[in-house]
Design a protein around this nucleic acid. Structure first.
Length: 508
RNA sequence: GAGCCGGUAGCUCAGUCGGUAGAGCAUCUGCCUUUUAAGCAGAGGGUCCCGGGUUCGAGUCCCGGCCGGCUCACCA
């Protein structure tokens, strides 16, 4: 018999004994007067004398975190909402069954309700002087160690609930993530955007360059793709007159997993009719500035040891960025810093990149030369048309489109453009993509005639933008890995645990 | 997909040159009415990730596999 079976058996026996004492081992309801954070907020600064005078009666509930038993009395900490409050259980102050419960049957991890009055101990800690205990739930398995918490990364991801119990910082990360999303929603709502939900299962995937997950619908007998982006559906809605529309939801891309990539990730996409990418640049800066304030209370923050400031976002064209970040020592050749004319010269581009087209080469060079250095938040604008099949071209530079990306912490966090709204031009772009696809580019955009049809009815001039919520959460919580801001990141499935059999054996 | 690193008690970790498997917390028994990483005395608990191999002998060395992390590639 392993130790864990031993513990499971002990705890199961303890749950039965709790029942024999007259408690329910798994309670139904507990009417508390304060959450633990509320109680600390309300009474955290009250002096011992004030507490004694007021003798505030409270009922609190939470998970038992520590127990210190001393013969005829003892202390425990209850944890709730990321905070903890001490309780003091004295034999002569509670019912006999309460003390029996506390003395012999309570385990770390159990959920307990306590009624009593607030006081301060000798050492000054706010505590509940218990008059009555309620048993609310038994914990049958050992909790992680109290001092070091749970460090095993795999267990933290697979059993996130344990991570949340044992590591208070983890809770803060996900609270911050929630604040980010709430702030973005609030700002968009304030500007008259409405939130919608568009299909996650799509007969044709588009709106980004990525490989999709495929699934199958039995009744219709059709293959469907999990969406790689909601873009084409949101723009159909703009055609339908939803001039300001947004969606915050999951995208799925069947690609590698890394510290910056999870196969499912959350994206905000919003579309504003009658706006262009210049309007979105200004809006983005304000959006990020206020999200930072709402999420962490400041626009300056530290990411991986370096300060970044969301109130001061630089703007640089893609070509300017290549020139600015050009470094001879990172090049295999001894070329001098290029001039703008070089970046327009197909021969020069061919010499410096293996990519097929001039546009792809320019982007490849940018990603190699400049991207790693984009740590401070920065807007990079004017991308080659070739790599942007859904963006509107620049009137004075037909090989470039009105598109920008925002980088911060060395990561791309947003992508935006003036939407292409000319159906003939869109058809030609799709045909260009089809040629790339026939040339072996699996991620090239598919011809989407249904989308073309919508555009034929007339898409107003529109600016659209996508912001990666997970990466924003990484920046605002100083997380190195995207898995630390996703509650249940994708892992290979575990084998059978055998827990059902062990529980069954206990019952027999 | 490639390279590097890791997997030992429920948790956090030691384990020397290949020679009987260790500590703290947690658990169990006893004592203890203001403790707080409570304390004191005692006890139990191991598929050393899995499978082969070398060896008189493997947690330790070799090979294969599984799972995870990091870096790179792809991508956002």
């Amino acid at each position: 018999m392993s130790l864990e079976d031993d513990i499971l058996g002990q705890r199961f026996a303890s749950a039965r004994a709790v029942e024999t004492l007259g408690f329910r081992p798994y309670g139904h309801r507990f009417d508390f007067t304060h959450t633990i954070p509320d109680a600390l907020e309300r009474y955290g600064s009250a002096s011992a004398e004030q507490l004694e005078a007021e003798r505030a009666e409270v009922r609190i509930g939470g998970r038992v975190q520590t127990i210190r038993r001393m013969g005829k009395a003892g202390f425990a900490h209850l944890a709730q909402g990321g905070e903890r409050l001490q309780i003091y259980v004295r034999k002569e102050s509670v019912r006999p069954e309460d003390f029996e419960l506390f003395k012999n049957l309570l385990d770390i991890g159990d959920i307990l309700g306590v009624e009593g009055y607030l006081f301060r101990t000798k050492t000054g800690e706010l505590s509940v002087h218990a008059s009555r205990l309620d048993f609310l739930a038994k914990s049958l398995l050992n909790m992680p160690e109290k001092w070091h918490g749970l460090e095993d990364v795999e267990t933290r991801y697979r059993q996130r609930y344990l991570d949340l119990i044992a590591n208070p910082d983890v809770r803060r990360v996900f609270v911050t993530r929630s604040r980010i999303v709430a702030s973005l929603r609030r700002q968009l709502e304030e500007r008259g955007f409405i939130e919608v939900e568009t299909p996650m299962m799509q007969p044709m995937y588009g709106g980004a360059a990525a490989r999709p997950f495929v699934t199958h619908h039995n009744a219709l007998d059709v293959d469907l793709y999990l969406r790689i982006a909601p873009e084409l559906y949101l723009k159909r809605l703009v055609v339908g007159g939803l001039d300001r529309v947004y969606e915050i939801n999951r995208n799925f891309r069947n690609e590698g997993i890394s510290t910056r990539h999870n196969p499912e990730f959350t994206m905000l996409e919003f579309y504003q009719a009658y706006a262009d990418y210049r309007v979105l640049m200004d809006f983005s800066c304000e959006l990020l500035r206020r999200t930072a304030l709402d999420a962490v209370g400041a626009t300056r923050l530290t990411y991986q040891g370096r300060e970044i400031d969301f109130a001061a976002i630089r703007r640089l064209s893609l070509r300017e960025a290549v020139i600015e970040f050009w470094r001879r020592d990172e090049r295999p050749t001894s070329d001098e810093r290029p001039r703008l004319e070089d970046l327009a010269d197909p021969d020069w581009l061919k010499r410096h990149s293996g990519a097929a087209g001039s546009g792809a080469a320019l982007v490849e060079i940018f990603e190699r030369i400049a991207e790693p250095h984009l740590f401070d938040p920065i807007i990079i604008y004017d991308y080659p048309l070739e790599t942007s099949p859904l963006s509107k071209s620049k009137p004075d530079e037909p090989d470039f489109v009105e598109r920008f990306e925002i980088y911060a912490g060395g990561m791309e966090i947003a992508n935006a453009y003036t939407e292409l709204n000319d159906p003939q031009e869109q058809r030609r772009r799709f045909e260009m993509q089809r040629k790339l696809r026939e040339g072996g580019d699996q991620e090239a955009h598919q011809m989407d005639e249904d989308y073309l049809r919508a555009m034929c009815y007339g898409l107003p001039p529109t600016g659209g933008e996508g912001i990666g919520i997970d990466r924003l959460a990484m920046l605002f919580t100083d997380s190195k890995s995207i898995r630390d801001v996703i509650l249940f990141p994708l892992l290979r499935p575990e084998g059978p645990l055998g827990l059902a059999d062990r529980l069954k054996a206990l019952e027999e």
